[in-house]
């Protein structure tokens, strides 16, 4: 079920979300998914989801070095996993704020990686800063929706698993 969530998230990321781009900046659904799944399912699941979705995103995009999105998402998933014990359960507002902050840090990390790794001229600092703010705002808005979808999907999976006779 997690694979379906990740794949759906990736497809939405490359097809629909560019339509709602604000000021030329596309929302980052995958990082929101990573945050939500790390908080809901634990750091291990979060790390796997971060790695797989990051790798798929890198494969779907040709302009970023392969593995860079994966590296950023894995690092952020680990940090969120470390924070998880200190956060109260089902604190939706906290999740949304954390998703927003993670979105900002993810864009800044991508900008830093691009400056370090790209042979071409890196994006301007102002562009990166604006992108980080817009993506962070989008992440705050997307987090409640992603939370609802993830909880319902995982609840359905757990219910069907519990119905299977031992």
């Amino acid at each position: 079920m997690l694979a379906a969530l990740v794949l759906t998230g990736l497809l939405l990321q490359v097809s629909i979300l560019p339509l709602v781009a604000g000021g030329g900046f596309t929302p980052d659904l995958l990082i929101v998914l990573v945050v939500v799944l790390t908080l809901e399912q634990g750091p291990r699941t979060g790390l796997w989801v971060a790695a797989v979705s990051g790798l798929l995103a890198d494969l779907a995009l040709t302009t970023v070095p392969l593995g860079s999105t994966m590296l950023v998402q894995v690092a952020l998933a680990y940090v969120i996993g470390l924070l998880r014990p200190y956060l109260s359960e089902r604190a939706d507002l906290t999740t949304a704020v954390l998703a927003g902050m993670t979105g900002v840090v993810a864009v800044l990390s991508h900008g830093a990686l691009a400056a370090l790794l790209s042979a071409q001229e890196p994006p301007a600092g102002e562009v990166v800063a604006w992108s980080a703010l817009v993506v962070g705002a989008f992440a705050i808005l997307l987090a409640p929706l992603v939370l609802i979808v993830v909880r319902r999907t995982l609840a359905g999976t757990e219910a069907s698993a519990s119905e299977v006779p031992a």
């Binding site: 291990r44 790390l47 593995g67």
Partner: peptide, 22 residues
């Protein structure tokens, strides 16, 4: 420790992929 191990492994994988891509 398991989480740490997984994290390190995934980071190394990402770094290897970046190196290969270059």
């Amino acid at each position: 420790r398991r989480v740490w191990g997984l994290f390190v492994a995934l980071v190394l994988t990402a770094l290897v992929l970046i190196t290969i891509d270059f």
